[in-house]
């Protein structure tokens, strides 16, 4: 069967347990939020079609369990992903302190070309903030990540976060197409991942939002 969409890029949501990954997903794909959503077991999945310029893109979003014991299973999803939202809870410093470990985990399994956005979620709880915006932004810049603060509860920046990642993926792919005389150009939406490009390649370049 031919897909009616140009492509179906897949994006993974990763980060510590309880930071709000599932709610970011349900806010983006269904415009719904639940104060007490259930713990994610293994991997969940949802899609949403967005317009990028004139192209309709059906984004596949994989929501993964944050718990350590599920890591071997969830990391299998990093491989096919072309984008990732690395989420922390800006009211819990501990969830930010381990971002570096998550990043390493991601790069260990994913393609080097993966577009990564650092996301500080729960920005509606500003009185309980434990991670200063500037600190997280600096970290993102230094590590070549995109950065945004979101609130799945009041919808702030949720759309923007996903769309920015998708746009960045597309720009990257079109750039790569332009100068792809080499054979290892990445193909969007290929779940198999194909050959791994050289790991010495530069990570996503930094964009300030």
């Amino acid at each position: 069967m031919l897909s009616p969409y140009l492509s179906t890029p897949s994006v993974v949501l990763i980060g510590e347990s309880g930071v709000g990954k599932t709610n970011l997903l349900s806010r983006f794909t269904r415009n719904e939020f639940s104060h007490d959503s259930r713990t994610t077991i293994g991997v969940e999945f949802s899609t949403r079609t967005v317009m990028l310029g004139t192209a309709a893109v059906k984004a596949q979003i994989w929501d993964t369990a944050g718990l350590e014991r599920y890591r071997a299973i969830t990391s299998a999803y990093y491989r096919g992903a072309v984008g990732a939202l690395l989420v922390f809870d800006l009211t819990k410093h501990q969830t930010y302190a381990v971002v570096e470990r998550w990043l390493k985990e991601l790069y260990d399994h994913a393609e080097a070309t993966i577009v990564v956005m650092l996301v500080g979620n729960k920005s509606d709880l500003s009185q309980a903030r434990e991670v200063p915006t500037e600190e997280a932004r600096m970290f993102a810049e230094n590590n070549g990540l995109l950065f945004l603060e979101t609130s799945a509860l009041d919808s702030t920046n949720v759309e923007l976060a996903f769309e920015t990642v998708l746009k960045e993926i597309f720009e990257k792919v079109s750039k790569q197409r332009q100068n792809s005389t080499r054979t290892n150009a990445i193909t969007l939406g290929s779940a198999q991942g194909g050959q791994e490009p050289g790991s010495g390649e530069k990570r996503a370049c930094c964009i300030s939002l």
């Binding site: 347990s17 309880g18 639940s34 959503s37 259930r38 713990t39 718990l67």
Partner: peptide, 13 residues
């Protein structure tokens, strides 16, 4: 700690 975080996310419905 992990239990505490999940108590309200077990069968909230």
């Amino acid at each position: 700690e992990e239990i505490e975080r999940d108590l309200h996310r077990s069968m909230p419905e």
